[in-house]
């Protein structure tokens, strides 16, 4: 009896920890996100990506703001994401355009890790193009 009650409690807690699916989407297991690598995924109609730098996982828009280029085909050095086509640079944490030719910052999304799974916010928390 006690054991069953305990299990039910834990299940309720786990459910409470999963972010609201209206606000966050599940992306992938945290353990598969390797240091210095980028992982594209679709969110609604947008192409986003995860990037892991110094252990921390970041979620950003995946398309260069200069011209169409898939940034996950680029590279990460320190905290800069480099566009594969024209070497625009973006700060992985802030999305700021740090190297021309890009001048428009990259939208940044919130990342939550719950129970070994990476969740990303549906809306950007920085540089939302709808607010420009």
């Amino acid at each position: 009896m006690v054991a069953v009650l305990g299990m039910r409690n834990r299940t309720q807690q786990e459910e409470a920890m999963v972010p609201d699916p209206n606000e966050y989407v599940e992306v992938m297991p945290e353990s598969l996100v390797e240091e210095g690598e980028m992982y594209p995924f679709d969110l609604d109609d947008e192409q986003l990506m995860l990037a892991r730098v110094e252990g921390e996982i970041h979620a950003l828009h995946g398309i260069c703001t200069h011209e169409y280029a898939e940034l996950w085909d680029g590279d990460i050095e320190d905290d800069t994401i480099w566009c594969p086509l024209h070497s625009s640079g973006f700060n992985v944490k802030t999305g700021d355009a740090t190297n021309l030719p890009a001048v428009i910052p990259l939208p940044v999304y919130d990342v939550k890790i719950e129970d070994g799974t990476v969740y990303v916010s549906r809306k950007p928390i920085r540089n939302d193009p709808d607010e420009r």
Binding site: A69, D73, D75, L85
Partner: peptide
């Protein structure tokens, strides 16, 4: 071969 470029630049 843009995917290789940054590596090549290094």
């Amino acid at each position: 071969r843009a995917r290789e470029f940054r590596a090549v630049r290094r």
